[in-house]
Nucleic acid binder design. Structure first.
Lengths: 119, 119
DNA sequence: TCAAACCTTGACATCGGTGTGAAGGTCAAC
DNA sequence: GTTGACCTTCACACCGATGTCAAGGTTTGA
């Protein structure tokens, strides 16, 4: 599919799809005329990227963790340097902290709304 | 406590403490000489703000949800307009989505690291 | 009384994610 | 063939969070 369809199906401006490519998060094949050509799997991939961006991760971090997210069952030996593994571990921990923070505060909002709706 | 101490105890640049105040997230008393004066509770408050910022919420949203986070057990009638309640509900849902996204991806990272450590 | 370590406000800079528009190539349909 | 809807690259602009620095006031201690 071309960029317009991917854009519509993911709700993502074309501008950003090109930006994510520039940042190394996605890679598009090219048709004979130079148009980008994405396959089906990119719909989910882009959605995943947007979700992660929305939770506060940077494109730089996302780029590092994406490979192990897509096929967690295989090791990417070229990527499995000690530095990368350390980054993954630290990012895992930061995500856990974020989850705790979000959960705590969301529950407080939910509780508040419950209270209001009872009053 | 003055701004320097709050800064140290929260690991937050003074610049940002002033910025959060400018955005209406915190409010400082003033000493006779004009210095900001914070009480103990602001340590947690600032930490909470930073945590939320880190999870992708904007200062604008944080400002809206803070009142109901601090004392969820009491209703702030002046704030309980239909618009505010709708915003709270929508923000609660967005946070839930973020939690799901973070959890899924963190678990994938964790699984990958487990695998690598076994190999 | 002077220095050092605080504090104040204000302004301008940076950085990452996004918006927008220009100038131009491709292709399908009428 | 011309129009309209796509696509390309490039560039400049914006916004929010943050860094940094200037110019100046206050307090503490040598």
């Amino acid at each position: 599919m071309r960029i317009g369809e991917l854009s519509e199906r993911t709700g993502t401006p074309r501008r950003l799809l090109r930006y994510y490519e520039e940042q190394g998060l996605i890679k598009a094949d090219r048709l004979a005329n130079g148009y980008r050509d994405y396959d089906e799997a990119y719909v989910d991939r882009v959605l995943q990227i947007r979700g992660l961006l929305d939770t506060g991760l940077s494109t730089r971090i996302i780029k590092q963790i994406l490979p192990c997210l897509n096929k967690p069952r295989e090791i990417h030996f070229d990527e499995a340097t000690p530095e990368t593994l350390a980054l993954l571990a630290s990012e895992r921990d930061r995500m856990t902290a974020r989850i705790r923070c979000l959960t705590r505060n969301r529950d407080a909002i939910a509780e508040y709304l419950e209270m209001v709706s009872r009053a």
